[in-house]
Simulated scan of single mutants.
Amino acid sequence: MALDFNMPVLVVDDYRMMLRIIRNFLRQLGFEDVDGASDGRAALEMMHERDYGLVISDWDMAPMTGYDLLREVRRDGGLARTPFIMVTANDTSEDRAAAKHAGVSNYILKPFNAVTLRSKIDALFDGRP
């Protein structure tokens, strides 16, 4: 699938400021249709109501973490193929291994900028039919 700037994107973070920052980065990159959710449960409900072309989620949230959201998405046949970028401030080999095992599409360390986000998104869509 080629990168489509018209696809709906879901950003998941429990900090409103971080939601706003990532949304602004996405708009700078040309994405217009960006929704936000404050935790994994809310995001999962939204994903069952709308077909998102990309999910960008923070790892550390309550009551449902981004990691738990990722695992639920990958178990759900209707959602399993959704590209999923995990955002975290924790750069441990254990977290990276766990995210990879759970099926993360890409991984971003905080802090990051729009250029880094664009490179992670491009890596997901380059060469996909």
Rank of each mutant, 00 (worst) to 15 (best):
D13A: 10
W59N: 12
D68Q: 15
D122W: 00
S119A: 13
D95A: 13
R41G: 14
G36D: 06
V87Y: 09
N90Q: 11
P63N: 09
A2L: 12
D58H: 06
S105A: 09
L3V: 09
A99M: 11
M47D: 09
Y67C: 00
L54A: 12
R27N: 12
N106I: 01
D14L: 07
V87N: 07
A102C: 05
D60P: 00
L29H: 01
I56G: 11
D60M: 15
V104A: 03
W59A: 05
R16S: 11
A98R: 15
K120W: 00
R50I: 05
N90D: 14
D4W: 10
T82Y: 04
R96I: 15
F25V: 01
Y107G: 07
A99P: 06
T65F: 01
S93A: 15
Q28H: 08
D33P: 00
A43Y: 00
R71H: 04
G40L: 03
F31G: 01
Y52V: 10
F31D: 00
G53L: 04
N106W: 03
S93Q: 14
R81V: 05
R16K: 13
M17I: 14
R50Q: 15
D51W: 04
E45A: 15
V115Y: 03
L26P: 04
L44R: 12
L70A: 05
S57G: 02
I121N: 03
D51V: 12
M18N: 15
R27G: 04
I21W: 01
M7Q: 14
M64A: 10
D68H: 11
G36R: 00
G103R: 09
Y15M: 14
E72K: 05
V73A: 04
R128A: 14
D58Y: 07
E32H: 06
T65G: 15
D13Y: 03
D35A: 14
V55I: 12
K110Y: 09
A114C: 01
Y52F: 15
R118N: 07
G40I: 05
A43M: 07
V11W: 02
N106L: 03
G103W: 11
A42Y: 00
F112P: 06
D122Q: 13
E32R: 11
G77R: 10
A99K: 02
R41A: 13
T92I: 01
D39N: 15
A99V: 12
N113F: 01
L3M: 15
L117S: 04
L124D: 04
K110L: 08
D68S: 13
E32K: 12
N6S: 14
A42C: 02
V55H: 08
R27V: 05
M47R: 09
G103E: 10
A114I: 02
I56T: 08
L79K: 03
P8V: 06
M7T: 13
M47S: 09
D60C: 09
A97F: 02
I121P: 02
D35E: 13
P111T: 10
M17G: 06
N24D: 08
N24H: 09
A123K: 12
L117A: 02
G36Q: 06
V55P: 09
M17R: 11
N6E: 12
R71S: 11
V9S: 02
V11L: 03
